[in-house]
Amino acid sequence: MKLHIKNMVCDRCILVVKQQLENLGFRAEAINLGAAVVEPEPDAAQLSAIGSAFKILGFELIDNEKDRLVAQIKSLIIEKIHHSDLTDSHLVFSQYLSTKIHKDYAYLSRVFSEAEDVTIEKFIIQQKIEKVKELLQYGELNLNEIAWKMNYSSSAHLSAQFKSITGLTPSQFKASGLAQRKPIDKI
């Protein structure tokens, strides 16, 4: 049985979900961001126990098709921005999402916007800015390198978008020394 799980945003989340399923007596046959295939198939009481155990850890079972779709969109975006190299290609997220999910982008966009009160484009921008904040805090790359790594057309474009989201320029953010980052699953 495939379980759809909300708030899985990193490899550690996968490990925690796998461990929790094993603690409850299930095998995770396949597990990735937002989903796990478990054996044996849980009954209603076991599903409730899984849901309760996940809730304590900040995860949530998703049973509604539209919620699953929104979670899948989020997982794909987070995976691409936070766990992949955006420099390999000039990715067009609308095409990427449509191809991966096998649905028209206009439909995906409408469902996402209705559920999240934010457009997919704005969600992508928010995720990219959080990744930029992380890279700025590491201090290993300069702004031009970060812009290139995050697939911005220029450091000026990145700076303008960063300021519109955070109210600070990248250099002001870095100079502040404050950890003003948001957890990925809270965006």
Rank of each mutant, 00 (worst) to 15 (best):
P170T: 11
N142A: 09
K100Q: 15
A147K: 10
A30I: 04
I31M: 08
L135I: 03
F112H: 05
K18T: 06
V17A: 02
E130P: 08
Y138N: 10
K55W: 00
R181Y: 01
V118C: 03
E41R: 06
D185S: 08
P183D: 07
H102Y: 06
F162I: 03
I124R: 10
S52L: 00
L21Y: 07
E79D: 14
H82M: 13
I184F: 02
R110G: 03
Y138H: 13
D85S: 15
V17T: 07
N23F: 00
L178S: 15
D85P: 05
I73Q: 13
L3C: 07
L57H: 04
Q161T: 12
Q20Y: 00
L136H: 02
Y105K: 06
N32P: 00
K131H: 07
E39Q: 05
S159C: 08
A53D: 01
I129M: 14
A175Q: 12
I146T: 11
I5S: 04
G58C: 04
V38M: 04
A45R: 05
S109T: 08
N7S: 11
Q46L: 00
F173G: 05
R110F: 09
K133P: 06
D11P: 01
I101S: 09
G34T: 03
T87W: 13
V92K: 14
T99V: 09
V92M: 11
L69N: 12
L47F: 04
I73R: 13
R12W: 03
I125D: 13
L158Q: 08
A44E: 15
S75R: 10
V9A: 11
E130H: 01
A147R: 09
P183T: 02
L168K: 03
S164Q: 14
N142K: 15
V37N: 15
